[in-house]
């Protein structure tokens, strides 16, 4: 095994662990993460596969094929994060609103 292969697989493994530990999420998200990690690892172990897939899909080099896939993957994770952030914003709004309503003061004319 080449050093780069080892490094990339290590990174994929860590990504999965980080994802599961930090963002408890729905099954769908988890399945996608596993698919990404497995596909990534497979490409690292069998570089010839990417070259063949690239030829099949008309991309050219195997590296390009992987890069395009990675971009799609990154875009997906950005959306995922954005959706989570909106959810967090919504919760923050609710919390802030409850605090404002429970601490409301009515001042009458003195």
């Amino acid at each position: 095994m080449r050093i780069i292969q080892f490094l990339l697989i290590l990174i994929f493994a860590l990504t999965v662990i980080a994802y599961f530990r930090r963002w408890r999420s729905r099954l769908r998200d988890r399945a996608l993460v596993i698919v990404f990690a497995l596909a990534g690892s497979a490409f690292v172990l069998f570089p010839g596969v990417t070259a063949r897939l690239a030829a099949l899909t008309g991309v050219g080099r195997g590296v390009d094929f992987v890069i395009y896939l990675a971009m799609a993957g990154l875009a997906f994770f950005c959306f995922l994060l954005y959706a989570q952030q909106r959810e967090t914003d919504r919760k923050l709004t609710e919390l802030t609103r409850v605090i404002a309503l429970t601490t409301a003061q009515e001042r009458v004319k003195s």
Binding site: L92, T96, R97, I99, A100, T103, A104, R107, K109
Partner: peptide, 18 residues
């Protein structure tokens, strides 16, 4: 504090809509 109004406060800034 000196005005006869109902006073509410958001502890953090959320925006005009909120």
């Amino acid at each position: 504090s000196a005005l006869a109004v109902h006073c509410l406060r958001h502890p953090v800034n959320l925006g005009q809509g909120a």
